[in-house]
Nucleic acid binder design. Structure first.
Length: 749
DNA sequence: CTGGGTGCAGTTTTT
DNA sequence: CTGCACCCAG
C-alpha cells in the first residue's frame, strides 16, 4: 500500500481532507526527531493516528516496534479506537493484510501503563512481585511508613518550616486557627500529603540525592527521609507511580532493556523503532529522559502538543519540555537543535473565526507570554478553517449585579437557546474553577438552571460522602469499631477524634445510620452482635475478621440489598468497597504479614477495637476523605447525558468541544501554587536542569493564562463569559476586552 | 462609579 | 488567615 491509497481510505472516514501543508508533512516524515506544535482544534490527534497507520501499512513497520503514549487512559483508549476503526476499513479493502499485521500488538497507552506492561513482559528483575500503588494507597503507605509522618517530635520541625507552603493552606481550612509561626509540626495526614508531593517530585524531577544531601540542613533531613521511604517501599514490595518510571529508566539501561530497545531480529523482540507522544506539553523531566533514551539510537521521536495548553504542573508536568524540545534533544543526543524538524499545526477546525481570533488575541495580550521561552519560538497565528461561520456575536458576556443575578441571567439565556436555537442542554457546557455546589462556585448556577427546568450534570461536585447509602454504610461501620460512638454520636470528641472536620463527618454518618436503622432492625442487630463479639475477645488479640468482611456483611443487610438495585447507588457502594480494599491492603508496620485490614482489640479498654487502630483509621483514611472530598464514580464513555447541561472543571473539559461554552471565574488573580514553589526549591538539585528560567510569579501567571485559554478554546459556535459586575473590572480571564453583551435572549444564529 | 468596611467561606487536576 | 462578595457612603 502506498500513501495515496492510504489517504483514499482514510479521508472518506475522516469526512474532510487532511491539510496538505500542515498535517500531511507530519504524517509522511517518518525518521528523525519531529516536534509538532499544534494549536487547539488543529487535528493533532488525527495526524498522529494517520501517521501511525502510515508507518504500519505503508512503511510496513511492525506494530510491536511502535510506541504511542498519551496523558490519560481515556485519551489512550480514544486514540486506539480511532486507529482500529481506520484499520478495519483498510482490512476490508485488503483482507490479506489482516493476516499479516497484528494491529493489537501496537504499544499504545499512558507511559505508566506501558512501563508496567513492558517490565512485566521482560521480567525485569527490578520489577518482579511488586504491588503498584495508586495515589490513595501511596498516601496511606506514606502515612504508615514514613518517618516524616510517624515522628511526632520536633526533629523534622525545620523541614516543616521550610515546606510550610505545602501544608499551611490546609491549616487554615481545617483548623479553627493555624499554627501561625509553626512551632509544632503539622498534623499527620497533612504531613503525609506533603511528603507524598515531595517524594514524587524528587523522583520525577530526577533529583541528584547526593547533591541534595551535601547541601546539609533540611536538605539532608529530606534526603534521609526520602531514602527511608524508598527502602520501605522495597521492603514491602511496593512501587508508586513515580518510581514506576524511574524503574523503567533503569530497565532501559540494563541488558534486558537493550534487548527490548534494539531487538534480536526475532518476531518476539523486534525492537523499538518509532516513538510518538501526544500531549507532550504535560511531560515531566523523567518522562523526557525516558523518551530520549527510548529513541537514543535512531532519534525517531515524534512529540505532539500545545505549549499554550499545559495544565498539569501540580502533577510534575513542566511545559519547559515542550518549549525546549530541540535543545533537550541536542543536549541528550549531541546533535544540533536545528536537526529537529519543527512543524506547526495552526489551522483550527473547531471554532467560529471570531472565537479563534479571540483566543489568539487573548494569549498574546499578556506581556509575560511574549517573553522568550514562554511559548515555542515562531508559533504562527491560529487560522480558522472550520465550517462554522456566520455574522453573529460569537464571543460575549453575561453579567448581573451579584453572582445570583448573573446565574439567573445565564439560566434564562440557556432557556432561550433551548426554546429557539438548540435541541439539547448538552450542547452547552459551563466551565469553572471549582464545580462544588457552594455559594461561591457552582451552587448558584446549578440552582438557577433547575429553576428554569434544566438539569445540570455535575458528577464531580464531591458529594459522594453525603449520599445516603455511603453515610449509612460508614455509620454502621464506625458503630462496630467504636462503641462509644454507637451509643452517643456527639461523643465523637471522646472517641479519639480530634479534628473538628473529621468529627462532624463521622457524627453525620452515625446519625444517618441511626435514622435508617430506626426502621431496619436487621442491620442494627448485626451491629449489636458484632459489638458483643468484639467485647467477648481477650484484650490485645487479633480479631479473626477483616474490615472488608465487616463492610460486606453490612452491605448484605437491608436497606442495602434494595439499594443495590439502583445502579447509581450500587456504583457508589462499589467505590466504597474499593476504598476499603485499598485501606485493608496497607501493611501494618511492626507486625509482619498483617495489614490495616486486620483488627486488634485494645489492651486498655476491654472489649473495644484498639484505640491506635481507630485513631489511624480516623486520621489517615477519614481525614483524607474529609479534606479532599470524594466525587461520584464516572462512567468512562459518558461525557454527559444528552438531556443535561454539563458543569465541568477546565481539566475535565480538556480535549472536548461544545457548541456553546460558558466560563465563570474571570476575576481570578494568580496566587502562588505550592507546585511552583516546590519545583523551584528542588531545581538546584536537578540532574537535567531546566533550560528556562522564569520566576515563580511569571510561571504562576503563565499557568493561569493557559488555564483560561484551554477553557475558551473549547467553544465551537459561541463563547460566553459569566461575569458579575465586580468581575468586569479586571482579572486575568477577561481584562475588559471589548465583546458583545448578551441579554436574556440571543441574536439569531 | 469608587473605595473602604464587614462578614463569611474555604481549589483543581492524574498516573 | 486570606480573599472574596457585597453593601453603602461619598
Amino acid at each position: 500500500m502506498n500513501m495515496q491509497q492510504l489517504l483514499q481510505i482514510v479521508q472518506p472516514v475522516l469526512g474532510y481532507p487532511l491539510d496538505p501543508k500542515e498535517q500531511i508533512p507530519v504524517i509522511s516524515q517518518a525518521n528523525g526527531p519531529l516536534w509538532v506544535v499544534a494549536g487547539p482544534g488543529s487535528g493533532k490527534t488525527e495526524a498522529l493516528v494517520v501517521r501511525t497507520l502510515k508507518l504500519i501499512f505503508v512503511d510496513r513497520v511492525s506494530p510491536k516496534s511502535i510506541m504511542i503514549t498519551t496523558f490519560t487512559e481515556k485519551a489512550a483508549k480514544n486514540l486506539f479506537d480511532r486507529i482500529l476503526n481506520y484499520a478495519s476499513h483498510i482490512f476490508q479493502n485488503d483482507p490479506a493484510l489482516q493476516q499479516a499485521i497484528d494491529i493489537h500488538s501496537l504499544r499504545i497507552g499512558t507511559l505508566h501503563s506501558l512501563c508496567n506492561d513492558i517490565m512485566l513482559e521482560y521480567r525485569h528483575p527490578g520489577y518482579e512481585n511488586y504491588r503498584l500503588l495508586d495515589d490513595l494507597e501511596q498516601y496511606l503507605f506514606v502515612y504508615e511508613h514514613s518517618d516524616l509522618v510517624q515522628d511526632n517530635s520536633t526533629n523534622y520541625l525545620p523541614l516543616w518550616q521550610r515546606f510550610d507552603y505545602l501544608v499551611s493552606h490546609w491549616d487554615y481550612i481545617t483548623d479553627s486557627a493555624g499554627w501561625g509561626d509553626r512551632t509544632r509540626p503539622p498534623n499527620r495526614w497533612r504531613r503525609a500529603k506533603a511528603a507524598v508531593s515531595i517524594f514524587n517530585r524528587i523522583v520525577e524531577d530526577m533529583i541528584d540525592l547526593n547533591q541534595m544531601r551535601n547541601q546539609g540542613g533540611v536538605w539532608q533531613l529530606l534526603s534521609d527521609a526520602y531514602e527511608d521511604y524508598m527502602c520501605n517501599l522495597e521492603d514491602h514490595g511496593r512501587c508508586d507511580f513515580a518510581h514506576l518510571q524511574s524503574k523503567f529508566l533503569e530497565f532501559l539501561n540494563s541488558l534486558l532493556g537493550d534487548l527490548f530497545l534494539s531487538g534480536d531480529g526475532s518476531e518476539r523482540h523486534p525492537g523499538i523503532t518509532y516513538v510518538m507522544v501526544d500531549e507532550y506539553q504535560d511531560t515531566n523531566p523523567i518522562q523526557e529522559a525516558i523518551y530520549l533514551k527510548l529513541t537514543e539510537s535512531h532519534h525517531n521521536l515524534c512529540v505532539v502538543g500545545d505549549d499554550d495548553q499545559a495544565l498539569y504542573r501540580f502533577r510534575g508536568g513542566t511545559v519547559d519540555c515542550m518549549v525546549t524540545f530541540d535543545r533537550a534533544c541536542a543536549r541528550r543526543w549531541g546533535i544540533s537543535p536545528n536537526q529537529v524538524t519543527k512543524k506547526f499545526l495552526s489551522a483550527n477546525y473547531r471554532s467560529h473565526p471570531d472565537i479563534v481570533r479571540y483566543c489568539d488575541d487573548y494569549i498574546k495580550s499578556f506581556p509575560v507570554m511574549g517573553l522568550s521561552g514562554a511559548r515555542v519560538a515562531g508559533k504562527p497565528v491560529l487560522v480558522s478553517k472550520g465550517g462554522i461561520s456566520g455574522n453573529y456575536p460569537a464571543v460575549g458576556y453575561v453579567t448581573g449585579k451579584t453572582i445570583e443575578e448573573t446565574a439567573d441571567n445565564f439560566a434564562r439565556l440557556v432557556r432561550d437557546l433551548l426554546d429557539n436555537i438548540i435541541q439539547l442542554p448538552s450542547q452547552c457546557a459551563l466551565l469553572m474553577r471549582s464545580v462544588r455546589e457552594s455559594p461561591r462556585y457552582a451552587g448558584p448556577f446549578a440552582e438557577a438552571l433547575r429553576r428554569v427546568a434544566i438539569q445540570p450534570y455535575n458528577p464531580r461536585s464531591r458529594t459522594f460522602l453525603k449520599q445516603e447509602e455511603i453515610m449509612t454504610a460508614l455509620g454502621a461501620f464506625v458503630s462496630v469499631i467504636d462503641p462509644n460512638l454507637a451509643a452517643n454520636p456527639t461523643s465523637a470528641a471522646l472517641s479519639s477524634i480530634k479534628g473538628p472536620g473529621i468529627q462532624r463527618m463521622v457524627e453525620g454518618w452515625v446519625r444517618e445510620y441511626q435514622r435508617i436503622t430506626a426502621t431496619n432492625q436487621a442491620l442494627s442487630n448485626y451491629v449489636s452482635q458484632s459489638l458483643a463479639y468484639i467485647a467477648s475477645q481477650a484484650p490485645n488479640s487479633w480479631l479473626g475478621v477483616n474490615i472488608l468482611e465487616i463492610l460486606y456483611r453490612i452491605l448484605a443487610h437491608e436497606p442495602f440489598s434494595t439499594w443495590e438495585n439502583d445502579p447509581e447507588r450500587s456504583y457508589r457502594l462499589g467505590k466504597l468497597t474499593k476504598i476499603f480494599e485499598t485501606y485493608a491492603s496497607v501493611p501494618y508496620p511492626g507486625s509482619p504479614g498483617s495489614t490495616r485490614g486486620n483488627l486488634r482489640t485494645s489492651n486498655v479498654s476491654q472489649g473495644e477495637v484498639s484505640f491506635g487502630w481507630r485513631q489511624d483509621f480516623y486520621y489517615s483514611l477519614v481525614g483524607l476523605l474529609v479534606s479532599e472530598g470524594m466525587s461520584d464514580p464516572e462512567e468512562e464513555e459518558i461525557i454527559c447525558p444528552e438531556d443535561r447541561l454539563p458543569i465541568m472543571t477546565v481539566h475535565q473539559a480538556k480535549g472536548l468541544q461544545f457548541p456553546f461554552v460558558f466560563v465563570y471565574g474571570l476575576n481570578q488573580r494568580p496566587s502562588q501554587e505550592s507546585s511552583v514553589s516546590l519545583e523551584d526549591d528542588l531545581s538546584q538539585f536537578r540532574q537535567n536542569p531546566s533550560l528556562l528560567a522564569f520566576s515563580q510569579q511569571q510561571r504562576t501567571e503563565q499557568d493561569l493564562i493557559r488555564f483560561y485559554y484551554v477553557a475558551y478554546a473549547r467553544a465551537q459556535y459561541v463563547l460566553v463569559h459569566l461575569a458579575p459586575q465586580a468581575h468586569l473590572k479586571g482579572g486575568f480571564g477577561f481584562a475588559g476586552r471589548d465583546v458583545h453583551r448578551f441579554q436574556q435572549s440571543v441574536p439569531t444564529v
